[in-house]
Design a protein around this nucleic acid. Structure first.
Lengths: 340, 340
DNA sequence: CTGAAAGCGCTTACAG
DNA sequence: CTGAAAGCGCTTACAG
């Protein structure tokens, strides 16, 4: 393959100087004769010299690479987050390796091992939907590996975390439904071993409590992030003699699936059942009625997480920071009753 | 940070043998005393020894990493392709670095430089919508870097390529519309400097020709993959005295945007205007009427491309292979006229 | 301001 | 079967 890789040795030989000097000229490091520096630089560009980053890494004991573990990129939230991460990382001269856990704990552990084996300088993690214990991360943290969690965080760890205001926004969404006259609000909640799902659920509960609306267990589905049980739940809800008059769903796909099923059953959205989703995917505005949802600044989350991590890696900032970035409720036809 | 990284030297010292022997035991290489091998392996696991992959890479002059350049991960097609790539790569013990060009030529060039600087062993590329010349790739190919294009390929290059049957499937989709009674079929075509867009466009043209339907220039929009001009085009079409009776769109987002606008104008889908999209995003079935679209085996494409590349890297397979994986037309309510 | 030397952690011909 | 040595390409104290 690449037959003619040229190294500092080649430059040194051609210029009749030592490779130490070449190295110093190239890195612009210590005091060095302007003249020799210029000659080195000129020859380097003429030869299209590219430093061998692997050698640099070995010497430096750093890879300038951060590892990212996310559930899946087909989830638009994480696709956007990855965008933010990459921009921030590239700006700081870091590479990014992305692994997908596919919402599986086993895969998440494998990802972690793979990234450690690749000697990444730090880790950005959003936990899988299956992850109900966290010792694999604990081990890594105890070894001193810089790590920042975002969105699906592990609140108990004393490391930096970036989240959105799950509690507040869920409360706001629920209150919005209440204001539309809804009293029997079903919820598809996320796995309760994840703190962000718990916080969202709490927001829902508190909104009900403050409005003196009794909680109805049968209107609650604790789902993972897959859609498997959503259809089943929708059909179940429709059989109740006191049907729900609203659904608040953990993600847009679940919301859309429900809306689809309800519509097929002849139920009117939002008048029979109002619906609010989560993530504000591009699709929301194309369905009929358009789906209310919660807009997350996923790219901001990713960017912030990356910046925190890089600060930790390069400047050794050890303080565990918690950042919260606000989401926003986007009200559309699926939850807005003009008749009220 | 990682204070106690343990190396083969440590193992060698503790066992009173040379690090050459340790290395050989670990890699299971040449003949080696079973007994010493066992002792080395045991100590290694006890010490949680992890080989320093950077050192291995430097020695081996290989990184076991492939670089990927795609337009954007928020595009579901590429998100799926990335999934296929990663599975195939991990299976073969390769790491993957993903870069997004954001449909920009400048960014694409930057990505290429970054990946070369990272010393990836090979490249997987799907070209940006803006890319109308290809010398940046040519340079890299001439240097002997293994490279495989997929989906948005550069047909003129003598390197391996993986595509779907763009021509056939576009022809089929157009013929389907014709069969529905459509005669004025508008098309949102992709950038014509990309061969896959050209092939799709050819499929459309040939279907019309074979059905003796005259081509109408004003029904054609050559767009890039962004949505900017789609709304404008939709409103323009609606002003024509002879409105189109069908639209074939380059991607689902464009199709949905059009459908949305037409519906707001009071046009009936599919009876006034039938619509077919491209990519078969999850949303297609949730809109009203459900959107006909073309299902791509994006993960298959990615997997195949990765396998070809890895074969080239590890076995030096130099033959330029062309693979074609068939897409599938999914007919839904947006293009199926029950009255015909 | 520059060079010789050591070293990052590993692998692998070359002897024995 | 094992060890000493060289080397992958770079950086950086240490002298001078």
């Amino acid at each position: 393959m690449r037959k003619t890789t040229i190294t500092i040795k080649d430059i040194a030989r051609q210029l009749g100087i030592s490779k130490s000097t070449v190295s110093r000229a190239l890195s612009g490091h210590s005091d060095i004769n302007e003249e020799t520096k210029k000659r080195v630089l000129e020859l380097a560009t003429r030869l299209e010299y590219q430093p061998n980053i692997i050698a640099v890494n070995l010497k430096q004991q750093r890879t300038n690479t951060i590892g990212v573990i996310i559930p899946e990129t087909v989830n638009r939230f994480f696709a956007k987050a990855v965008g933010g991460i990459q921009h921030a990382a590239n700006l700081a001269g870091f590479n990014v390796i992305i692994c997908q856990s596919d919402e599986s704990l086993v895969t998440e552990k494998k990802n972690l091992q793979a990234l450690l084996a690749s000697r990444v300088d730090g880790l950005l993690v959003s936990v899988s939907g299956e992850t109900d214990h966290f010792d694999h991360f604990e081990t890594v943290i105890n070894k001193g590996m810089p790590i920042v969690f975002f969105d699906r965080v592990v609140e108990s760890f004393a490391v930096s975390q970036v989240i959105s205001n799950n509690y507040d926004i869920s409360k706001e969404a629920t209150q919005h439904l209440i204001k539309q006259g809804c009293r029997r609000i079903a919820i598809i909640a996320g796995p309760q071993h994840l703190s962000n799902s718990r916080n969202r659920f709490r927001g829902y509960l508190d909104a009900l409590k403050e409005a003196d609306i009794p909680l109805q267990e049968r209107l609650i589905l604790h789902s993972n992030f897959k859609l498997v049980r959503v259809g089943e739940f929708a059909r179940y809800l429709a059989t109740l003699k006191e049907k729900p008059d609203a659904v608040f769903a953990i993600n847009d796909m679940a919301a859309l699936e429900m809306m689809h099923i309800f519509k097929n059953m002849g139920l009117k959205i939002p008048d029979d059942i109002a619906i609010v989703g989560f993530n504000n995917e591009a699709i929301c505005k194309y369905v009929d009625p358009p789906l209310s949802s919660i807009e997350h600044p996923a790219d901001e989350l990713g960017k912030m997480a990356a910046e925190l991590l890089i600060g930790q890696i390069t400047k050794g900032e050890a303080m565990a920071m918690r950042h919260c970035i606000n989401s926003r409720l986007v009200i559309r036809g699926s939850s807005y009753r003009q008749t009220t």
